[in-house]
């Protein structure tokens, strides 16, 4: 199975090399693609020091556009599995093999690395947990399915979903939105428990002030999924 690990990176010069090296150390038959999303620091140079392939976006697109560039690359280069993983070292690469196996055995078309199936020692603030609960409830109401960690950016998908994502992907806060859309289309999604590190360097893209906007945007996006016209 031709597997691509997509690592979006925006201003991650301090840890991108470490993240890539970690991924490659644990998994030797995967390709790694760093998508440098118009970083203002030396992320590009640091990424090129590794053995990873590097996509250098001419200007910043935001997380959705960057990850989609990765899916487009995966689609054009005929990959069977694509896994996205954050560039800040939050996601432990030791789960990649398990995710690939689930896709390989056709148990699911998407695998989400989830922080909440088991107690995994990831510190959650009350506000964040509350937001995630709201997202879960909305998903449950409209699709009848529960995803424990609908905001996780650690996910694996098969070839069919790679194509879907390369055609259409939200530009900001893409995870809850895409999960909802796939659930609506009856795509089989599986969650596996993963241990997540609290981030080592850099800041979360979601500051307290932005979190209200985040919830409004995400809720709206999920409701739009409900009424959206089906394409194809």
């Amino acid at each position: 199975m031709k597997t691509l690990i997509i690592i979006p990176a925006y201003n991650e010069e301090k840890c991108i090399k470490k993240v890539v090296d970690n991924v490659m150390e644990v998994n030797n038959n995967v390709d790694v693609l760093v998508v440098n999303d118009g970083s203002k620091d030396d992320t590009l140079i640091e990424a090129k020091k590794t053995k990873a392939k590097v996509l250098n976006l001419p200007f910043n697109l935001g997380i959705g556009g960057a990850v989609q560039a990765g899916y487009l690359y995966a689609y054009k280069n005929n990959y069977d599995v694509a896994i996205q993983l954050d560039g800040d070292g939050q996601h432990n690469p030791k789960y990649i093999e398990e995710m690939v196996n689930i896709i390989k055995e056709n148990k699911a078309e998407m695998v989400i690395g989830s922080r909440f199936i088991e107690e995994t020692g990831y510190n959650q603030t009350f506000a964040r947990m509350f937001g995630i609960r709201i997202i879960r409830v909305i998903m449950k109401i409209f699709t009848g399915k529960k995803i424990f960690d609908p905001t996780s950016g650690y996910r694996a998908v098969n070839k069919r979903i790679i194509k879907k994502f390369s055609e259409n992907y939200p530009y900001d806060y893409p995870e809850p939105d895409t999960n909802m859309r796939l659930l609506k289309e009856k795509v089989q999604i599986m969650e596996i428990p993963v241990e997540m590190h609290n981030r080592e360097t850099g800041k979360s893209s979601i500051t307290p002030l932005k979190s209200i906007y985040y919830m409004i945007k995400v809720t709206l996006a999920m409701l739009i999924c409900v009424i959206e016209k089906r394409k194809g």
Binding site: V35, V54, N56, P58, L61, G65, A69, L72, Y73, K76
Partner: peptide
Amino acid sequence: LNQEIAIINE
């Protein structure tokens, strides 16, 4: 266009 340029450059 941005994404396609990045892929062609690579």
